[in-house]
């Protein structure tokens, strides 16, 4: 479903993605972890071309993403993206946030879009917050609305960029629960996170990155309990001491 072929990217002199080869299959849940600055966020931002790559190919659902000519709007409609900082639109209610893209990108009639939005809010357990503005919601609730916003486009792939890193500890659970449910429904997911519990529960594969390279991939249990490389072991010991 998603394919990276010899992908390279630089920010100035910094080599952020160094010869990445990767395939993500339909229905797979991939967790990406690694120290900060390792290129993991850049990796998933390339999938819907929030970042452009300089070398190599990225193919999503047989569409080449790296080419200028590719139909980005159509592509992005198939991919939901959840940001670390939520990025809900502060001047719109939850419902309006969710309905904006379906109505304007997919041209779904308003009444239908509203139905979809209500359905998605239910799915993330916030049906009572449809008329609330982002500023009236807690961080966890905001992130769940953001997930609902992504789901409203009926995407085939959901990307999560550190979805729980900006949250207070007591709110992490509610967001992860929503993601676990999503995974169990067979959604193709690519999640940048350090939440080991989540990874062990639902991930099919864990990918460890450092300095722009994929250092190690494996089943979550294997990876966390018996990392093959020293760098991964070092990283895991650091996140465990928290």
């Amino acid at each position: 479903m998603i394919q990276f072929k010899n992908v390279n990217k630089w920010f100035g002199k910094l080599h952020v993605l160094n010869d990445i080869n990767l395939e993500i299959k339909k229905g797979e849940v991939l967790v990406v972890c690694g120290p900060s600055g390792s290129g993991k966020s850049t990796l998933i931002r390339c999938i819907n071309r929030l970042e452009k790559i300089q070398e190599g190919e990225i193919i999503v659902n047989k569409n080449p993403v790296h080419k200028r000519s590719s139909n980005l709007t159509k592509l992005r409609a198939q991919i939901g993206f959840v940001f670390q900082q939520f990025h809900l639109y502060p001047h719109m209610t939850s419902l309006q946030n969710i309905m904006l893209a379906p109505v304007n990108v997919k041209n779904i009639p308003k009444s239908n879009a509203e139905k979809i939005a209500i359905e998605k809010l239910e799915q993330v357990g916030l049906s009572d917050k449809s008329d609330s503005y982002p500023a009236q919601l807690s961080g966890g609730q905001q992130q769940r609305v953001a997930i609902a916003r992504g789901l409203a486009m009926s995407p085939e792939i959901m990307l999560f960029d550190e979805p729980t890193s900006a949250l207070d500890p007591e709110m992490i659970g509610e967001v992860l629960d929503v993601m676990v449910n999503l995974a169990s429904e067979g959604m193709t997911m690519c999640v940048v996170t350090h939440e080991m519990g989540f990874a062990k529960k639902v991930a099919d594969r864990v990918l460890f990155m450092d300095e722009g390279k994929i250092i190690e991939t494996g089943k979550p249990d294997e990876f966390f309990d018996n990392p093959k490389t020293e760098r991964a072991a070092d990283f895991i010991s650091k996140i465990l001491t928290h």
Binding site: R76, Q85, H87, Y89
Partner: peptide
């Protein structure tokens, strides 16, 4: 905020939208 623009980009809205 830059993130607002990115969120719009990610959900496929064009420049005018």
């Amino acid at each position: 905020d830059e993130g607002q623009i990115e969120a719009g980009v990610a959900s496929g809205l064009n420049y005018v939208q």
